[in-house]
């Protein structure tokens, strides 16, 4: 399923000629061609934001954030490793380490780019990199319960008015995409707490497994009290299809 030929653009990545569909993000083009670029704020399922600046590469000699740099014209020339790039990444890693000095991923990057946290930024180690992946995930899930609030160094992820967010459905979309595990939640068999809010957990009426919070089910248009878990739902749907009369099956071709 390749794109029509006229919308392809070609250029080089680390000296190798590549051709990609016009407007492909550089990061994707590189990865598709087997070239790795480190990222933090990028998540493949979320719209890119370009805020962490770890994925900087050189395009025609200038640094650009590869996660959202669109390849638009023929003749691009991209370099993904250089002294300048290493210096830029070392700088970013040094700064982010001041927030999450124990994060494994950051420590590995610190070793790679030979940097360490600066003691003069000490005192604000809350584990959060302000990458906003949680915020984008929450938006994608349909809630907008948390946002990055405040500006400058006091910027942080929080609900409106810094209170437990009214719109939070307790779906854990945020926690699942957090690169450092800074979004904390607790869960028992029938309850969950996150962002200072408590949720009950609804069991699947068939198998009894936890399906989610009633709020999250309602948000998806499902019965908050008795929605089936994904597996039981699949089974139920397959059963319904088998029960359909022959001619009701959608025609192909």
């Amino acid at each position: 399923m390749s794109a029509p030929i006229e919308t392809m653009v070609s250029g080089t990545i680390n000296g190798r000629t590549v051709a990609v569909a016009k407007d492909t993000p550089l990061l994707q083009a590189a990865r598709d061609n087997g070239v790795g670029i480190p990222t933090l704020c990028h998540h493949p399922a979320l719209p890119p934001d370009g805020n962490c600046r770890l994925c900087l590469v050189e395009v025609g000699g200038k640094l650009a954030a590869s996660c959202l740099y669109p390849l638009r014209e023929d003749g691009f020339s991209v370099v993904t490793e250089s002294g300048k790039i290493a210096g830029a990444r070392a700088f970013v890693v040094k700064l982010l380490l001041s927030r999450a000095p124990e994060d494994e991923c950051l420590l590995r990057l610190a070793a790679l780019y030979q940097t360490a946290p600066d003691p003069r930024l000490a005192g604000d180690e809350d584990g959060c990199l302000r990458c906003g992946r949680c915020v984008r995930a929450c938006h994608a899930a349909g809630s907008d319960a948390v946002a990055l609030v405040g500006r400058g160094r006091s910027r942080k992820v929080a609900g409106a008015f810094l209170e437990p967010p009214a719109d939070c459905a307790g779906c854990l979309a945020c926690a699942r995409v957090c690169p450092t595990g800074a979004v904390k939640f607790r869960e028992t068999k029938n309850s969950r707490s996150i962002w200072g809010k408590e949720f009950s957990l609804a069991p699947c009426p068939v198998c009894g497994r936890t399906v989610g919070t009633p709020e999250e089910l309602a948000r998806a248009g499902l019965d908050p009290g008795g929605a089936l878990c994904p597996e039981c739902r699949r089974r139920a749907m397959a059963g319904a299809l088998l029960a359909l009369p022959e001619n009701a099956a959608p025609k192909r071709g």
Partner: peptide, 25 residues
């Protein structure tokens, strides 16, 4: 500028703070 930084990107948000602290010193 550190106070006016929107805080979106890491270099400006954290980097200006660091530069500011060294200058303060």
């Amino acid at each position: 500028l550190s106070g006016e930084s929107c805080g979106k990107c890491a270099p400006c948000r954290e980097g200006l703070t660091l530069i500011g602290r060294i200058l303060d010193d």
